[in-house]
């Protein structure tokens, strides 16, 4: 489980997260829902050590974020940022292959290759495996990035608005896939969603932030809602 203790953070000079205490349960899907600017992405990037929090503490199982070696955490937790700035001159297979880097550090074993093809198959990217990323549509690229995150083979997956660029059918199949990852493979998924309908239907837990009690306010804190 991910345990967040008294976490505060600023963006620029404005406080986005204010003394948050929160526990995200293991092996289930937790959805973060709320309007723009509520601090959802910030929370995710703090958990994934992309930013260093102003104060407070985050633990992923027995690993304390920021204190444990970053490559150890990379085998435990993977994040798909909202707008990943990936250099375009890579094929899909190459990109997904990078997901295995934390495990092989540049020298892939046959097992690593097998995991990569599994991930490509899981996201139905077989036909696109050797296409260059800059020739893909937004939705295809999104799936390729997700495949990379899946190939990283971590207990925890943090996804920041993965439904961006996806049509309804693709969104549904992605959410179904997340449920499979969770139920069949025991992964823990934390996902930022805009649409409360998807959250209600697919997530086990919802963390809501509304204008009256945004994530950042102490009074509203984080509300964990069972589906």
């Amino acid at each position: 489980m991910i345990r967040i203790t008294d976490l505060s953070h600023n963006l620029g000079t404005s406080r986005v997260l204010h003394g948050i205490d929160l526990t995200i349960p293991k092996g289930q899907i937790t959805a973060l829902i709320g309007p723009n600017g509520a601090g959802k992405s910030t929370l995710l990037s703090l958990i994934a050590r992309l930013d260093t929090p102003l104060s407070g503490r985050i633990d992923v199982d027995e690993l304390q974020v920021g204190a444990c070696p970053t490559d150890v955490l990379a085998r435990r937790l993977a994040i798909l940022p909202q707008t990943p700035e990936i250099a375009p001159r890579l094929s899909v297979a190459e990109l997904v292959g990078f997901g295995r880097y934390p495990h092989h550090k540049g020298r892939p074993t046959p097992e690593d290759r097998a995991r990569v093809s599994d991930a490509i198959a899981l996201l139905s990217l077989d036909g696109l495996a050797h296409r260059s990323l800059d020739t893909l549509s937004g939705g295809q690229r999104q799936r390729a990035l997700l495949a990379m995150t899946v190939a990283q083979d971590t207990d925890y997956l943090l996804l920041d608005e993965p439904l961006n660029n996806l049509d309804i059918a693709a969104s549904r199949s992605l959410m179904t896939l997340l449920r499979r990852l969770c139920e069949d493979f025991g992964r823990t998924v934390v996902v930022v969603l805009h649409d409360i309908n998807y959250a209600s239907r697919y997530a086990d837990w919802k963390i809501l932030s509304t204008p009256s009690c945004p994530l950042g306010s102490r009074a509203g804190a984080m509300q964990l809602v069972w589906r």
Partner: peptide
């Protein structure tokens, strides 16, 4: 460092996610 460099070329966030500094 060539493999590390491949990772760094992916950008800051991706590199951190894959365990680089």
């Amino acid at each position: 460092m060539r493999h590390r460099l491949d990772i760094l070329a992916l950008g800051r966030d991706a590199a951190i996610n894959l365990g680089e500094n």
